[in-house]
Design a protein around this nucleic acid. Structure first.
Length: 553
RNA sequence: GCGCCAGUAGCUCAGUUGGAUAGAGCAACGGACUUCUAAUCCGUAGGCCGAGGGUUCGAAUCCUUCCUGGCGCGCCA
């Protein structure tokens, strides 16, 4: 709809240039078309005349008049007005709008999908929590946002892979292995002085008990080997928990990528060598450094420590280089905001390799403050005093939890009060939206009972839909595809949530004001057609975000 | 000290990428169930968009200086 209008304006503009009405020769960039906040200002509005005022050195209203004259008689528009300082306001013909309903019905579950991505390959890496313990609520937010970003990108025609990066190499894995081993010895009757820096949480003891039940008892096995076996066992089991918890939350990955496998395949050395060959790294104080300061970082960074071991950064660099080797055009990382200090060095590394800065997009997920009854709930992995994601999903529910995380832009902090979320669950916004869907389903059941069959595409009398409420609903439906595209291009899935709330509100209002099934059959059929279009779009948007669309509530 | 994010109604947040009179939800107050599901709707009230300066036809939005809150600034992971 919007694009058709844009085309028409483009044509009018060309005409003005060719007949000399406009003569600066300076062409504007993209024509900006927006939906005015105030409905009196029409369906669409453009500031084109004001943009041209300067290069043309003519008053904006004069330019607007020329453009309007060139648009005269266009079948798309009912009314074109010049307003304010030089806005051109368009009111589209009602028949154009009703075609949207046919489009929704025809496309069904694919309505809202587009191809603006042209199959560009994007990888979204998210969660990537260390496999040293269960997921907590902060991971949950990153998980939902990452999943939803991937989903809107897919809907907009990008080719998307969801990946989880497993940090299964490094010190924290040693710590996990040692912690399990010590608990195991404790279970075997040894008296153990459990270290401060070990993982103290009860699940470590559970893992030890499970290990004891499934394997031999590691008596007489060398310390280092014993730790290694415990660590591998722990990672394997914990990853099972993580995968299961995510699945219960509606999140599945296309690929689980192991950090350790980078070392096993000698990828880290290979990628570091490429950097060295390009002169991007240097040796100093027995360590190997990456020259990130040349590309905007405030400090050079160590890749290999003076003791010969690799930093976490080294494997991260290799990992990201390898992502592009795998053929992705763009890479998105979803990180906790506390890692933001890492961005400059990662971008510096990529610039050094000739990538554009926007090839890597890092989405920072701000902290989730977990509260219970308004009081902060302090969590620490070691203390064992934490509520897992699984607990929260079980307590609040999957839909409510996902909805809550998607309601805000990810770069603002979020208070999550467990009691509040539970207590409010009856008037939680997610139910508001789902209720709209259930209501249409209910109308459908009543219609079926009365022997009224939902009309096929285009088989209704549009003149029955003359209420302002009805036209407004149709216009809202028309906006859905554009909403998805904007959510994708800006990595902002919350736009879809707000769209859903707006659509549901309009529907509820309409429902309360007018009956769908009335005495006049033609009107009933037309309205049934309309509300089912609403239902399709609600269902599409809900499913896009991994939310259910219940038939009854 | 330096950097990143935020500051919009009493509370929680949107704000279509610089547009016209800044919007929702909750909380408050007043109404609507004999009618397709009241988990709903209608109405009232609520604002110096953290503060100052700048850019222009036009700023919550852009630039700048401050203020407040959160988070970072390792040869840790």
């Amino acid at each position: 709809m919007k694009e058709q209008l844009r085309q028409a304006i483009q044509t009018a503009l060309k005409q003005c240039y060719s007949d000399g009405t406009l003569d600066s020769g300076e062409r504007p960039g993209e024509i900006q078309l927006e939906i005015p906040k105030n409905a009196d200002h029409g369906d669409f509005s453009t500031n084109l005349a004001m943009m041209l005022a300067k290069p043309e050195r003519k008053p904006p209203r004069k330019i607007a008049e020329a453009l309007v004259a060139a648009l005269e008689g266009n079948p798309l528009c009912d009314k074109i007005e010049i307003a304010g300082p030089g806005f051109i306001n368009f009111r589209l013909a009602a028949t154009c709008w009703y075609e949207v309903l046919d489009r929704v019905v025809e496309q069904g579950s694919t309505y809202g999908r587009s191809d603006v991505g042209h199959g560009t390959k994007i990888q979204v890496e998210f969660v990537s929590a260390n496999p040293t313990g269960p997921l907590h609520i902060g991971h949950g937010r990153g998980a939902v946002v990452g999943d939803a970003v991937a989903a809107v990108l897919q809907a907009a025609g990008f080719e998307v892979q969801r990946e989880y990066y497993i940090n299964d190499a490094g010190n924290q894995i040693q710590t996990l292995g040692r912690s399990i081993l010590l608990r195991l010895r404790e279970l075997q009757g040894e008296k153990i002085d459990f270290p401060e820096d070990g993982y103290q949480a009860p699940y470590v003891t559970e893992l030890a008990a499970q290990y004891r039940a499934e394997h031999d008892e590691l008596i007489g096995v060398a310390e280092e080997e014993a730790i290694e076996r415990c660590a591998r066992f722990g990672i394997k089991e914990i990853l099972k928990w993580i995968e299961a918890d995510l699945k219960d939350f509606g999140i599945e990955f296309d690929n689980w990528y192991s950090e350790k496998s980078l070392y096993d395949r000698d990828m880290v050395d290979q990628e570091l060598k490429k950097l060295a060959d390009k002169g991007l790294s240097f040796e100093q104080d027995d360590a190997l450094w990456l020259r990130t300061t040349e590309f905007g970082d405030d400090k050079d960074r160590v890749l290999i420590k003076s003791d010969g071991s690799y930093t976490y950064f080294a494997s991260d660099v290799a990992y990201h280089m390898e992502k592009f080797d795998r053929g992705f055009d763009r890479v998105i990382d979803v990180w906790g905001a506390d890692h933001h200090g890492y961005i400059p060095r990662m971008k510096a590394m990529l610039s050094g390799l000739g990538h554009a800065p926007e090839d890597l997009e890092v989405l920072l997920i701000q902290m989730v403050n977990l509260l219970r009854d308004g009081k902060p709930y302090i969590m620490g992995k070691r203390s064992g005093n934490f509520i897992t994601l699984k607990d929260v999903v079980g307590e609040v529910g999957r839909d409510a939890c996902r909805f809550f995380f998607l309601m805000r832009r990810c770069d603002s902090q979020l208070d999550f009060d467990l009691e509040l979320a539970k207590q409010q669950s009856s008037d939680n916004p997610v139910y508001y939206v789902q209720y709209a869907h259930a209501r249409v389903c209910s109308i459908n059941r009543n219609a079926a009972e009365a022997g009224i069959v939902l009309p096929e595409k285009g088989k209704i009398d549009y003149s029955c839909l003359e209420l302002a409420d009805e036209l407004a609903l149709v216009k809202q439906l028309a906006r859905y595809p554009e909403t998805v595209v904007n959510a994708a291009l800006n990595y902002e899935p919350h736009r879809v949530i707000f769209y859903l709330q707006d659509l549901a509100a309009q529907f509820h209002s309409y429902y309360n004001r007018h009956r769908v099934l009335v005495d006049d059959t033609a009107t009933s059929l037309a309205r049934l057609y309309l509300v089912n279009s609403v239902r399709i779009v609600l269902a599409n948007a809900l499913s896009l975000l991994g939310l259910s669309a219940p038939d009854r509530m």
